[in-house]
Structure formats: C-alpha cells, structure tokens
Amino acid sequence: MILTNIETVPGKTIVEHYGIVQGSTVRAKHIGRDLMAGLKNLVGGELKGYTELLQDSREQALARLSEQARELGANAVVNIRFATSSVAQGAAELFVYGTAVTVVDEMGEQ
C-alpha cells in the first residue's frame, strides 16, 4: 500500500479512484503511565509513554485506513491527512483519512 500526503503518487499514474477511506483509533495509557507523566511535568522533558502511545495510535489508524483501501481494491492512498480530537480525557484520539486510488507505472499500462 502506497501512502502519500500529496495529491498524486510521483512517478505513477492514477487510473481509478474509490472515494475516501478513514482510519481512527482511541487509545489510553494505564494509570501508572499517567502518574509518571504527571511527575515528569515537574521537570519537563520527553514523555516517553505518551510518545509511544501516539505512535501506536498512528500506526493503528494507518493500518485501518490501509485495510479499508485494500478492501476497495486500491493500491495507494493519496492526500492523507491526520487529525485529532479530544472526547476522552487522557486518551489519544487520532484519525487519518485520504483518497483510495489505483496507480500504475507512468509508462506501462498496468
């Protein structure tokens, strides 16, 4: 699955498109991590637990997006956008959406 956040896939031609696909996830860290993050707030620095959380969320959201695109028969998703929301307190909510397309090599005919 080719994922880009520009409107095309460079070096390839889009031959079909299937509309939008989305992936979303809401994830929380356990309370111990939250407490540690609270302590870390006193001295500053990277919150490793939360970095990890966001990374996992992003990966899962992208995996869901790719899965949806695959079901549509697409082989690429272009113009991907990430967004966040904050419904749940202390949880990371990520969603990602893009346009599912089929691409072929610029020269060849699939």
Partner: peptide, 15 residues
C-alpha cells in the same frame, strides 16, 4: 478524468 469506482467497504474496520 480519473474514473470513479463506487464500491462499498467493510464499515467495521474502525470499531
């Protein structure tokens, strides 16, 4: 114009 293929997906992927 790139042709649009209307296909429905498994909609439970995000849940």
């Amino acid at each position: 114009k790139i042709p649009f293929i209307a296909r429905s997906t498994d909609d439970t992927v995000n849940v």
